[in-house]
Measured scan of single mutants.
Amino acid sequence: MKATFQVPSITCNHCVDKIEKFVGEIEGVSFIDVSVEKKSVVVEFDAPATQDLIKEALLDAGQEVV
């Protein structure tokens, strides 16, 4: 499964690193693409990962998800 999250609070590479760390810890996540320019995060994943778990990880990383 693939999901795109709009994350307007992404401003720098530190944000990218933190997002990759938090989302990458979720079992089932196979790909993460964070774009500072587009302020988006694209995640490819399989169970047990879910969109809700990914959104929670983004929030835990200090990001706003819309």
Results as ranks from 00 to 15, higher is better:
residue 10 I to R: 00
residue 49 A to T: 02
residue 60 D to L: 15
residue 32 I to H: 00
residue 25 E to Q: 14
residue 36 V to S: 03
residue 52 D to R: 12
residue 46 D to V: 14
residue 18 K to N: 06
residue 7 V to S: 01
residue 14 H to N: 14
residue 35 S to W: 06
residue 51 Q to I: 15
residue 27 E to V: 11
residue 46 D to M: 13
residue 10 I to Y: 03
residue 24 G to K: 09
residue 14 H to D: 14
residue 41 V to C: 04
residue 22 F to Y: 11
residue 58 L to F: 04
residue 20 E to Q: 14
residue 28 G to K: 02
residue 29 V to S: 00
residue 23 V to N: 03
residue 58 L to H: 01
residue 46 D to I: 13
residue 54 I to S: 01
residue 57 A to W: 04
residue 5 F to H: 00
residue 27 E to D: 10
residue 55 K to D: 01
residue 33 D to C: 15
residue 61 A to R: 02
residue 16 V to N: 04
residue 26 I to Y: 02
residue 13 N to W: 12
residue 49 A to M: 00
residue 35 S to E: 04
residue 12 C to A: 11
residue 3 A to Y: 11
residue 31 F to W: 13
residue 66 V to E: 08
residue 51 Q to L: 15
residue 30 S to V: 13
residue 33 D to P: 03
residue 42 V to E: 07
residue 47 A to R: 09
residue 25 E to W: 09
residue 4 T to S: 07
residue 64 E to W: 13
residue 43 V to G: 00
residue 11 T to E: 08
residue 3 A to F: 10
residue 18 K to W: 08
residue 42 V to A: 07
residue 39 K to C: 13
residue 12 C to L: 08
residue 55 K to M: 13
residue 11 T to G: 07
residue 25 E to M: 14
residue 7 V to N: 03
residue 16 V to D: 03
residue 12 C to W: 10
residue 23 V to A: 03
residue 33 D to K: 12
residue 51 Q to P: 12
residue 13 N to L: 12
residue 17 D to S: 12
residue 9 S to K: 05
residue 32 I to D: 02
residue 8 P to Q: 08
residue 51 Q to D: 07
residue 18 K to C: 06
residue 32 I to A: 03
residue 7 V to W: 05
residue 14 H to P: 05
residue 51 Q to K: 14
residue 61 A to Y: 05
residue 3 A to S: 08
residue 33 D to R: 12
residue 17 D to M: 13
residue 17 D to R: 14
residue 13 N to R: 15
residue 28 G to W: 03
residue 54 I to Y: 03
residue 27 E to C: 06
residue 20 E to F: 15
residue 63 Q to I: 14
residue 52 D to K: 13
residue 48 P to A: 02
residue 33 D to A: 12
residue 22 F to K: 08
residue 42 V to H: 10
residue 59 L to C: 06
residue 29 V to T: 02
residue 3 A to C: 12
residue 64 E to R: 11
residue 32 I to S: 01
residue 53 L to G: 05
residue 53 L to T: 07
residue 10 I to Q: 03
residue 53 L to K: 13
residue 5 F to A: 00
residue 35 S to A: 04
residue 31 F to K: 13
residue 30 S to N: 08
residue 62 G to F: 13
residue 32 I to G: 01
residue 53 L to N: 05
residue 35 S to K: 05
residue 53 L to C: 05
residue 25 E to N: 12
residue 7 V to R: 00
residue 7 V to K: 00
residue 31 F to Q: 07
residue 44 E to V: 14
residue 4 T to E: 10
residue 24 G to E: 04
residue 31 F to A: 10
residue 29 V to W: 04
residue 27 E to H: 08
residue 58 L to Y: 00
residue 27 E to T: 10
residue 21 K to V: 06
residue 59 L to I: 13
residue 20 E to L: 15
residue 15 C to N: 09
residue 36 V to M: 09
residue 53 L to I: 10
residue 34 V to Y: 05
residue 29 V to N: 01
residue 31 F to N: 09
residue 10 I to P: 00
residue 42 V to Y: 15
residue 61 A to L: 07
residue 62 G to P: 03
residue 30 S to F: 12
residue 36 V to K: 05
residue 34 V to N: 01
residue 65 V to L: 07
residue 6 Q to F: 15
residue 23 V to E: 00
residue 19 I to H: 00
residue 59 L to T: 07
residue 25 E to R: 15
residue 38 K to W: 12
residue 22 F to I: 11
residue 55 K to L: 14
residue 46 D to Y: 13
residue 4 T to I: 13
residue 10 I to S: 03
residue 43 V to K: 03
residue 53 L to M: 11
residue 7 V to A: 02
residue 29 V to E: 00
